[in-house]
Design a protein around this nucleic acid. Sequence first.
DNA 1: GATAGTTTCATACAACTGTTTGAATTGCAA
DNA 2: TTGCAATTCAAACAGTTGTATGAAACTATC
Lengths: 223, 223
Amino acid sequence: MASDHTRSAILAAAERLYADRGFGDVTLRDIVAEANVNLAAVNYHFGSKDELIAELFVTRSIATNRERLHELKTAEERGGGRAPIEVILRALVGPTLRGCLGPQNQRSTAARFMIRASIESVPPIRRIKNREIDHLRKFVGAMRRSLPDRSDVDIYWGLNFALAMAHHTIRESERLTKLSEGKCDLDDVEDVVARVVSVATMALTAGRVETKAPARALARDAR
Amino acid sequence: MASDHTRSAILAAAERLYADRGFGDVTLRDIVAEANVNLAAVNYHFGSKDELIAELFVTRSIATNRERLHELKTAEERGGGRAPIEVILRALVGPTLRGCLGPQNQRSTAARFMIRASIESVPPIRRIKNREIDHLRKFVGAMRRSLPDRSDVDIYWGLNFALAMAHHTIRESERLTKLSEGKCDLDDVEDVVARVVSVATMALTAGRVETKAPARALARDAR
DNA sequence: GATAGTTTCATACAACTGTTTGAATTGCAA
DNA sequence: TTGCAATTCAAACAGTTGTATGAAACTATC
């Protein structure tokens, strides 16, 4: 299998360029220039540009998914097959947030790449994301076990909102910093994780009568 | 100023095509074919492709922003300068959700266009979104007046999470439907609005001691 | 050290892109 | 009608893109 030198040089260069300048204006020629390899090498080693992008994204996202599942499994084992909902949610959003946020000047190339992937969402990446559902189902299962009295619908919505807060915060981290004039500290990742988990937990555990019903009544009035 | 016929035919055709097929694979030639006008007409009337896209997006988003501000103003006037936080949040996320969700087969072209814009995020649109901060500040102001005891940081985070849930639900509505096997009814927009508002309200009003502190403690343990 | 298989290379290809041009046409005012 | 500006049109332009090709260079095996 030779030395893999060219192949990994392309991967590294591509990830760096995509992270810095986005998918929109990075061409294969840019990548091979950065990697100091021949233009044809990309198609030789990866088949096509899209497959290169896909490989980059898959590599990173299976790493994240592995972390997620590891945290989940550990938690459930420790709890005898049932983990507290906070811990499940933390396993869900923690790895992603830790992977993408943190002190801006020391964000890894991988992190910045994943942020780009989250913002721009090109076709090869979208295709992969669509297959993520099976992975999410494992969390749905854990959440059901953790909150057996909760309806499936509420579980799905809770999961949706948890992912929403994590991903949106990553996508729009710059805007939040600007809007809050730096008051929201996105470098303190553990604080961000705690906030997301806290709100998602409330969403999933709040009694319907006390909290949701009034909101619905209000909704009806507003028509 | 003549009849504007060509100009509006281009706008309509472009919006329809972008809504159906996304920004990625719709060319100017596709648009002029659909609109039955000459290729050069786009540059004549709009200057460039990007300006065409920008005009489409600006038109729709100022409409949404107007609705938002109208709801907000009405609510604050009714409350003597201070509106309940639920109503403010509803004014923030309601128009967007109503504009983009609803029974799939009767979604307007405009709605589907805005979903695309939310998913793909091309450069001309991103530029416009960056100028949205001033608009959001008005909501920050209203939220401060509504929750005078709350810290600015908490306000910003609450706003961020509210937008997160709304936008993510729009962006990933298909996936949520698939994941929940149809159990989450995204056609019932008012239910979605109520859920988002309810969770965001909890995020903004929950006492720190009762809810957030334990989560943080847990975070610390998990290190 | 010849051979077979892998990898690299320069180059060309073919297609598509947004944009421009300059002539033709139209519509309106004097 | 005449004249002038606004609009439309066909055609070409200029540049870029990802991909394919076939020869050259390399590597390891026998």
